[in-house]
Structure formats: structure tokens, C-alpha cells
Computed example of a mutant assay.
Amino acid sequence: MRTESGGPPHRAGEPVRAGVPEHGRIPRYYAVKTELLELIEELGEGTALPAERELAHRHGVSRVTLRQAVCELVLEGKLLRRQGSRTVVAPPKVLQPLALTSYTEGVREQGIEPGRTVITAETLRADPELAADLRIDTDTDAAVVHLERVLLADGERVGLESTYLPQHRFPRLLEEFAPDGSLYAHLREQRGVVFGEAEERIETVLATPREALLIGTNPSVPMILLHRLSWDSDGKPIERVRSLFRGDRFSFVTRLYR
């Protein structure tokens, strides 16, 4: 079925007019992209796409046009490029709740095994902004504990997390905490810390060359950046966290109340 303009039909739940411009002229690559989405549904997760030459012939377009359609689907997380130039149907995105839960808890609820690779575990001096967020007196004790860890989902690198905690509140954290484990579980079970509330800000960015290398992604892939500041039930700061997630592998969800 086609619209009067000759474009793909608009189905309930899709963006208005399924991306068709008001003038009705659809870029050829976008039409191919729509047709590839139907093929992706038929093939299923992990299945390789037919060869580029075959797909270009099947859709009656140049290989340049086909590559543009495939590239957008890769950026959107519908397709994955594998070693050896294979392009396969991507698995569903990891759905992470925007809630006062840890990465470990959110991922494990979906039947995915979380993991972390430790990049940095150190104590350093807080800059004025960080000291203010964590209510650290820079005249007496400006030290913070810094943990930088690559986030894993079923062994796949999906993000990079940098956490800062006031060292005066958690003086022996680096000696007592296994940094490849769940920090929230350690704080809750070993230190009796009760998270009371948090402020979270979300934006989209591109990874720096270092971040892309650590996460193992293409620097052109959009990333989701989360900034979180957490307090305990008494209103005392616990942590400031900067979490960077692959936009092609993660989606975030929350429930809103009036």
C-alpha cells in the first residue's frame, strides 16, 4: 500500500506521515530505508543482510544510495556492522529505567548479564564545581574517590561511567569495594547508605576519541550522556556520576505522574 504521494503508508504509532515531507517527494534513500526495515523484521536478530550488490539491484538504486540507507539504520541501532564487512540485524536496545537504581539492577531485570571493566580507581582533588556539588570544604578536605568503568551488557561494551564520591565520607572505599561490582549494592549492603533522591540531566553528544576507543564504538555514533547527582535520605550528597551510553544500543524509560 502506498500513499497518494507515492510514499510508504502511515501506520498508527509511526511518526506523522512516516517521514514523508509535505511536498510529497521522498528521497530515494529513505524509501530504500523503509523497505529495508521490512526486511529486517523478516530476517530477525543476528541474521546477515544480503550482499550490498544484491540489495542495490533488488531496490533499483546505486550502491551509494543503498549505503546511505544502511548507514542510517546502523546509527539508529537497527543494524550492526561486524568484522569482515558483515552487516547483521541488531538485537533490541537495552531498556534502562530512569530511576534510583543501579546499572546492574536495571540491566539484570531484562535478563542481561551486566559487567564492568575498571579503567581508573583513584583518589584525587576535587575542582570547585565538584566540591560544591558534593559539599566538600576545599580548605580542609577536597579529596574525592574517582571510579571510571566501561559498562558491559552480556560481555558487549555499551557505555562508560565516571563516578565521584566524597572521600571523607567513604575513606576506605577503594580498599573495601571491588570496583568491577555494583557500587549501589556495596553502599547499601556494606555501609547502610539509603539513596533518597537524585537529579538527572540527559543530553546527546558524540564520544571523544578516547571514549570511543574505550567503548569500542565509531565516533560518529550518537551517544546518550547522563549526569546524575544523588543524595541520601538525610539530604547529604553521595555521588556525582557521568554516564555515557551508546545511542544505538540503549533506550531509557520512565513513568511520569501528575
Rank of each mutant, 00 (worst) to 15 (best):
L39H: 03
I40D: 06
V94A: 11
A121M: 00
S85Y: 12
Y30S: 06
L95V: 11
V64D: 11
K78Y: 12
V89F: 09
L79Y: 01
P50W: 04
G77F: 01
A99H: 10
H23L: 11
Y103W: 06
T101E: 13
G77H: 07
L66A: 07
R67A: 14
T117F: 03
T65L: 13
C71T: 11
T104R: 09
P21I: 08
L49R: 09
A69N: 11
R86L: 14
I26E: 11
T87W: 03
T87M: 12
L49N: 12
E109M: 02
A99G: 10
T120Q: 02
R58Q: 12
G19R: 03
V32G: 11
V20E: 12
V94F: 05
L66N: 09
E35D: 15
A126P: 02
H23E: 10
S102M: 05
V74C: 10
A31C: 04
G19T: 01
T120I: 01
V88G: 14
K33L: 15
E72C: 12
E105A: 13
Y29R: 10
Y29Q: 03
K93P: 09
A51F: 08
S62I: 06
T123P: 00
L80R: 15
P97V: 09
L49Y: 12
V32C: 13
G44M: 13
R116P: 00
V61R: 08
Q68L: 06
A90K: 05
R108S: 09
G46M: 12
E22A: 15
R53H: 06
T87G: 08
S102G: 14
T104N: 04
L100P: 03
V74T: 14
L55S: 12
A56L: 10
A56G: 08
E72W: 09
G115Q: 00
L37F: 09
R81D: 03
L66C: 07
